[in-house]
Structure formats: structure tokens, C-alpha cells
């Protein structure tokens, strides 16, 4: 068992050191002999055992004696530990590929491939931007009325529901991926704008009015708002110009936005968004599965189209 454990460990160390590479070759030879039920006669296991004992004996003679007596047993233990950790490591890599986190979807525990936890960061209603370990708990579309949410490709078999805010960094980061996904796979796409950073819902109201005036121009406006400087979002004249540049009657939209009826409908929409129990923006539901934080494109694509999305 020692040679199998050694082969795996030394192969990894061999990436960085030539001497370990040579030992890995010896270990491989030993492994090949063992799997073909021949004795390992290269002296490799003896060499490794002596090297390990040589280190242990300088720290504890009793420890070295114990190790020497139970070396085979301890080799088996090391083998199973290695096997277990290898499975966990492979699982971690798989989970990272599929969910953007080594620990599973929306899990913000430490992941070596995403050490800063970027894939799970959200802009929240509070001041902090970090998540609890299970931020998706309770996040759901059940009993949420989506009928008033702006929609694209209504009735498609797949569905993306996105809760985001124009001024939030993480939403701005993920928005291009979602748009690309929508463009490529044409799912039903619903977008709920929720300003977690700003105290005003002006843009939400403007968005509501634009959508009802011309749905296509609403998505064009979203594309601009998610890419423009954040400072512009607080500037009514910029919004006015933007509406005009989209070929909309800016004055009419602004009148609509300040209409109390609009306010009531937007408030209803915001209430529906709150009913999702979303922890912050972006929160994206793909076919009902909540994904909190800006995941890589592939994670959404896999959720939408399966593991081999890139073949489609």
C-alpha cells in the first residue's frame, strides 16, 4: 500500500521537484508490480520506509519503534486516508466546476479555487457583503407571483429569474453572463430590479414604465444601465437622455414613473421580490434553483443545459 500512497503523493510533489519525480517513477514501477500480484523488488518501499523512520527517530524513538512495527497497517490507514481525501478533492473540483464553489452550491466555506469567495458575494440590504454558509435556505419562487415581472421569451421551457440591482457591483459583474445565456439558449427570462444600495426606487419605477411602453426597449435600457458608470444612475438628466436615446418619450416615462399608481404597482413587485427571501443581489433562479452571488457563466449554463452544455 505504501507504494500506491507514495506514488500519488510523489507524483504531485514531482511537479515541483526532479528528485521527487524520480522517486515517483520508482513508486510507479512498484505499483505496477503490486497490481500484477508480483512482489515489489525495486527496494522502493524499503527506501521510503527507511527515510520516514530516519525522520521519526530523531523526534521520538518510541514513535519510530511503533512505526516500524506497524508500518504495513499504518500504510493501509494512510492509503484509505489518501483515498478519502482524493475522493473529497475530486468532489471539490467537480462541485467547483458545477456550482462555482468547492463545497456545493451557494456554500461560502473556503474554496481553494475561489479563495476570496467571489462566486458567493452579494450586495445585501445590510452593510455586510458576506453570506452565511447556507444563504439559499428559504430562498424560493414558490408562492411568488411573477406575472408582473418584466419577461423575455415568455413560455420557453427553461426559466431564468434574476433579482438584481443596477448599482450593485456583483449584479453588474454577472449581468453580461446572464444576458449571453439568454441570448444563446433563449430561456424565459424574468428580471426583478431591487435597489439594495440606494434608498430610491426611481429606476425601478422608470423600468416598470419603460417595460410597459416598449418591452424591447426595456431590455436595451437594462443593458445600458448595467454597463454605464455607477455615478450616472443617480443622475436624473442622464436617465432622461438615455430614455430619449432609446427613442422613448422621456417626459411621458417620467410622468408615468411619478404616477402614484405606478408607485403602487412597483411596490407590489418589490413585495413579490421580497417574498423570495433573497439574501441579496444577485440572486438568480434557474428553473427554480436559487443561485446566490455572481457565479461563472458555466455554472448557470450547466444548471440550464446540463453538464455538457458546451456541446449544444
Amino acid at each position: 500500500m505504501l507504494c500506491i500512497v507514495s506514488f500519488i503523493v510523489l507524483s504531485i510533489l514531482g511537479i515541483f521537484s526532479a528528485s521527487n519525480r524520480q522517486l515517483a517513477r520508482e513508486a510507479l514501477d512498484c505499483v505496477l508490480r503490486r497490481v500484477t500480484l508480483r512482489p515489489c523488488n525495486t527496494g522502493f518501499d524499503e527506501k521510503i520506509k527507511a527515510k520516514i523512520l530516519g525522520v521519526v527517530i530523531t523526534r521520538s524513538e518510541a514513535g519510530a519503534r511503533f512505526l516500524n512495527r506497524h508500518f504495513e497497517l499504518l500504510s493501509w490507514v494512510a492509503f484509505f486516508l489518501l483515498l478519502g481525501s482524493s475522493v473529497m478533492a475530486v468532489r471539490g473540483v467537480y462541485l467547483f466546476y458545477v456550482t462555482g464553489s468547492c463545497n456545493g452550491l451557494n456554500n461560502s466555506a473556503f474554496c481553494v479555487f475561489d479563495p476570496t469567495g467571489q462566486n458567493n458575494q452579494v450586495s445585501t440590504l445590510g452593510q455586510t457583503c458576506s453570506l452565511s454558509d447556507n444563504p439559499e435556505r428559504g430562498v424560493t419562487l414558490k408562492n411568488v407571483d411573477l406575472s408582473d415581472w418584466p419577461v423575455l421569451n415568455a413560455g420557453a421551457s427553461n426559466q431564468i429569474v434574476m433579482v438584481g440591482c443596477y448599482a450593485c457591483d456583483y449584479t453588474r459583474k454577472v449581468y453580461p453572463s446572464i444576458r449571453a445565456l439568454v441570448q444563446k439558449y433563449r430561456p424565459e427570462f424574468r428580471f426583478g430590479e431591487y435597489q439594495v444600495k440606494e434608498q430610491t426606487d426611481l429606476l425601478t419605477r422608470v423600468g416598470y414604465c419603460v417595460y410597459h411602453a416598449d418591452p424591447e426597449k426595456y431590455w436595451a435600457m437594462n443593458d445600458v444601465l448595467f454597463t454605464t458608470e455607477k455615478a450616472n444612475l443617480d443622475d436624473p438628466s442622464y436617465v432622461h437622455q438615455l430614455l430619449a436615446s432609446l427613442g422613448l418619450d422621456a417626459n411621458q416615462i417620467e410622468t408615468c414613473a411619478s404616477d402614484p399608481q405606478t408607485q403602487t404597482r412597483v411596490e407590489k413587485l418589490l413585495n413579490e421580490i421580497r417574498r423570495t427571501n433573497f439574501p441579496g443581489t444577485p440572486t438568480i433562479f434557474i428553473n427554480g434553483v436559487p443561485m446566490v452571488g455572481p457565479k461563472p457563466y458555466r455554472v448557470y449554463a450547466i444548471q440550464l443545459e446540463g453538464l455538457f452544455y458546451w456541446m449544444k
Binding site: 527496494g43 524499503e46 527506501k47 520506509k49 527507511a50 527515510k51 523512520l53 530516519g54 525522520v55 527517530i57 530523531t58
Partner: peptide
């Protein structure tokens, strides 16, 4: 005790 083991251990430990 195998002589190679002794030699390896001598080198490793001291």
C-alpha cells in the same frame, strides 16, 4: 536489518 535501510536511516537522521 537490511544494510540499505541502515544507510538510508543514517543519512536521513544524522
Amino acid at each position: 536489518i537490511d544494510s540499505h535501510r541502515i544507510a538510508l536511516m543514517l543519512d536521513q537522521m544524522a
